[in-house]
Design a protein around this nucleic acid. Sequence first.
DNA 1: ATGGTAGCACGGCTA
Length: 269
Amino acid sequence: MKIASFNINGIKARSAALGRWLDEAQPDLVVLQEIKSTDEAFPREVIEERGYNLETHGQKGFNGVAILSKHPLEDVTRGLPGDESDTQARWIEATVGGPTHALRVCGLYLPNGNPVELDSEGQPKGGGKYAYKLDWMARMEARLRELMALEMPLALMGDYNIIPQAEDATRPDAWRDDALFLLPSREAFRRMINLGLTDAFRACTSGPGHYTFWDYQAGAFERNDGIRIDHILLNAYAADLLIDCRIDTEVRAGEKPSDHVPIWAELAL
DNA sequence: ATGGTAGCACGGCTA
């Protein structure tokens, strides 16, 4: 089973590009981020006409996530638990059955967190975007602790807005004080990894020069000035089934591309 | 310090 994550940056503007990639890559399951659409306005045709089931968790204008799958999706839940007042659409879960095992999938769009606002003590300012990011990550860790009790394969994938290490950026110095690379961000990411998750990409490929995002501005892609912030994390049941994980870099050179490219993993299930 | 680009939706926010 080939599973993938793609920050589509606006599904209405990206239907053609998504269709081209689906035809080429033939994934079994995809989580999308930044659909920037309500559920009602989502252009479902491009997905459904290719034989995918579709579950959306949308929002007007910003954010929004979705799961598409050739196999039926079961036990779909929407929203990250832990804060009833949080109205941002950034989390969706579903279970998909393969020939041999079922897989629990979480599709996530982790908050960006910029601008970083700190108080006089150097702590994230309450109500600010960086505090929201760290609060959201704490809630994700709590949900992950529940999911780790499931004795079945688990994949958490999406736009994490986290640069895990310096080698995951062309110019790490440029990101030193950015919410994507600040130490508290990377510590919160590592805490989740340390609960027993495998970074599928790093299980298959080491070294610098592998990115999933290039800014639209200043010709970042042409200069290969990128960052690796879209990740597929697997629990041990899923990591034991990992065959390969790759980034579809060439998608960024296509017509009217998203600023992110897809990342996918092949699992033996 | 600014401006550089893009999406949504039509003004300004988000990234």
